[in-house]
Amino acid sequence: MRDPLTAPEKPHEGWWRYLDAVRRPRGVVAGCLLVLLIGAALLVPLFTGGYDQQSADTFLGPSWRHLFGTDELGRDVFVRTLYGLRSDLVLLFAGVPISAVLGTLLGVLGALSRPLGLAIQRVFDIIIGFPSLILGIVIVLIMGTGLWGLTVTIVLFGLPGFGRLARAAMLAQEQREYVVAARVLGISRWKVLVRHILPNSVDAIIVHAAIAMVIAIFLETGLSIVGLGLQPPQPSLGMLLNTGVRFLSLSPMYVLGPTVVLILLALSFSLLSDALNEAVTRK
């Protein structure tokens, strides 16, 4: 039997833990919610004419035709919510993976070189020192509002978390017996890093990626509420909340509908992170 203190875990063995995570109660709920939300966001163009179809029927109440009612321009709020969900998912699945890759690389470089590591940690300290909303405002003001500004904000804000996590995981793995044995046998440090240390450090990074999704959701929402997110007529969940709050007394569903979808999206990634964390800690 393999001794976990003297031999690295084979990379393919770790994937079974991730599959085990989605079979847990929290993982099942998270998976169902994500499939439902992602499916609705992907399929909405097939059943609607677009997110900016206007009509004379303004501020209609919820009905089978308009589940969330209509807005001030007669547009279907439910349709715009699904398109807003689509925009948010594009931001999440673009920004968070880029942040994870760049942050992990910076963390690894910081572990390999002490001077470089100190410099990278000071940069991370500067990023962490800014409140997320203030950091987002600064970046968006420099790059301009829209998809690119939000994506860069999500990437930069996520770098310290991934970088420090990768550095800590790598330093912990370097103290294990199988790494020491490999170095005694003359195997190069880079080969040990690529073949053994990084594959055995990926668990914590994947769990943190699910948490970073939740952070990115609320970061986009916060920037959109202050008017620095996607610009009309292109919807996002945050932008719908920003606009709908002005007409809350006329159409409560204008705010309530996107809020429910936003909460479900954040809840799904939160439950997924819990399920992944429970699965990987059993190894």
Rank of each mutant, 00 (worst) to 15 (best):
G107A: 00
V108L: 15
G110F: 08
A111Q: 05
A111V: 02
L112G: 05
R114C: 00
L118G: 10
R122I: 03
S132C: 00
I134G: 01
L135E: 06
L135V: 05
I137L: 13
I137G: 01
I137W: 04
I139F: 00
M143V: 14
M143N: 10
G144T: 00
T151I: 15
T151N: 11
V152G: 07
F157R: 14
P160I: 00
G161F: 08
L165F: 02
L165P: 01
L165E: 07
A172S: 14
Q173A: 14
Q173G: 05
E177G: 03
A181D: 06
A181V: 04
R183W: 12
L185T: 07
L185C: 11
G186F: 11
I187V: 15
R189P: 01
R189L: 07
W190Q: 12
L193A: 05
V194Q: 15
V194E: 13
R195Y: 07
N200Y: 05
N200P: 10
V202P: 06
V202Q: 12
D203I: 01
D203Q: 13
V207I: 08
V207E: 10
A212Y: 06
A212N: 08
I215D: 13
A216K: 11
F218E: 04
T221L: 13
L228G: 00
L230I: 15
Q231A: 06
P233C: 03
Q234K: 13
Q234I: 13
S236I: 06
L240P: 04
G244T: 08
R246F: 13
